[in-house]
Nucleic acid binder design. Structure first.
Lengths: 235, 235
DNA sequence: CGTCATTTTGAGGTATTTCAACGAAGGTGG
DNA sequence: CCACCTTCGTTGAAATACCTCAAAATGACG
């Protein structure tokens, strides 16, 4: 493992109330433990990382770039389960097999952790495991939130909620106007369970109403925060 | 704590492959640890258990009956996040506050575990914590599966997936014809993000097509397994 | 600068939502 | 045990919003 690599971190809110900062982060020792059993890999955009149902040998920690996990449905449609950014963990498995497929969206830097080795480590290091437990609970909240988003009927509303959730995910409580959108419109459609055309019309609608401007197709600039939040809350 | 109570168990599939049985269960020592810090409570149907945003003091383990967790949306609509059956854990929190509200559906028996005490216990008992980690990962899968269900457009398909998921949840791989439905039609509607009328028409449709018969409103009997699974897979 | 993938725009079909009213079920008190 | 009331569930008809199919336009990349 090259020591010049950026160390792995895990972004998550705790489920317990804490007096100090709201984020749970790994300390130096825990990072060293992870690094000690991991491989740091750098991969180009679009690189497939694993396929659903294949043996789950590794857990991944994203340190740079964007990743998507998804499921191909019997009809040929595809549903994106999550977008993963730096500090996110992925490699969701059940009975030793991956539940989703995963693919790099941009160029990414990942820590690849052998799952069985990690499991042993976690059993012996309660503090480290607690960090992963917090992250898993965090993932439950995110998945539930996504279910709420997808349950909406109107495309502009779904898109509004998506943009806000994305910003919250990437920047926490500091909420800049410009939201990077590394994924394609098709990716957004597959995440929101809309057709590509519906996403396109929804972006156009938000732009026409002066709520968001999509300068670059990969950057959304929030022009009217209050109307955006009102639209997101209109569910 | 009365010693005659049924002990707490946690139903979950592991994320690692295991040679033995597919379920992760607490051993006797772990159950005793949990019991030692818990209160066993028996509550009548419809009893509210906690409200979203209120301080999260307890984690709950369901040992008998059915519970729902839900979120009330700004519009007045309600989305049910999950139905909880014996062996399920609930009390999802973020920064010390519950994310959802919870209410008993039937008469229930619960173990009520103080969250801070539990967190200390978990930090010191890696094996016990590992069981909870497995359960949390299990919850992530369930929430993702629900997002897939809700993302469908057609009501009969959503209902078909719901029935199959419910059976899988309650009975694992032994799949009896009769699926108990302790929740009301409104609950199903709020879970599937459909209108009550749409659920009613969907049940009628499944019944008319001879796929499922709803003898009692609280029991669904699968008449044609292959057509049910084909409908569920038609996404 | 040409080619290919991605995105946008247009028109019609179909499903659910909504609104309204009816019917059934369950619980409570006399 | 029955009447009443409230909640829950069913049915019907019109409106809305997305999906699908098709084609044009834009952007990315070699």
């Amino acid at each position: 493992l090259s020591s010049g690599d950026r160390p792995p971190t895990i972004r998550t809110n705790p489920f317990l109330a804490v007096t100090a900062g709201a984020e749970v982060r790994l300390n130096d020792r825990q990072r060293q433990e992870i690094i000690g059993i991991s491989t740091c890999v750098r991969l180009p955009a679009r690189m497939p990382l694993y396929r659903a149902q294949s043996p789950a040998k590794w857990l991944f920690i994203n340190v740079e770039g964007a990743v998507k996990t998804f499921r191909d449905l019997p009809s040929g449609k595809r549903r994106i389960a999550a977008f993963l950014f730096p500090g996110d963990v992925f490699g969701l498995a059940e009975n030793g097999r991956y539940v989703n497929s995963a693919q790099a969206i941009t160029r990414v830097t990942l820590y690849r952790v052998p799952l069985d080795t990690l499991a042993d480590l976690l059993r012996h290091d309660g503090e480290l495991q607690f960090a992963f437990l917090c992250k898993a609970v965090h993932e439950v909240r995110e998945a539930q939130q996504r279910a709420v988003i997808v349950s909406r009927r109107d495309a502009p509303g779904r898109l509004a909620m998506f943009l806000r959730a994305l910003r919250q995910n990437m920047f926490g409580d500091s909420q800049p106007d410009a939201i990077p959108l590394p994924m394609s419109r098709s990716d957004i459609a597959e995440f929101l369970a809309l057709s590509l055309e519906a996403v396109s019309r929804a972006t156009g609608e938000l732009e026409r109403r002066g709520i968001v401007s999509f300068e670059d197709r990969h950057v959304a600039r929030v022009l009217d925060e209050s109307r955006l939040s009102r639209l997101a809350a209109a569910l």
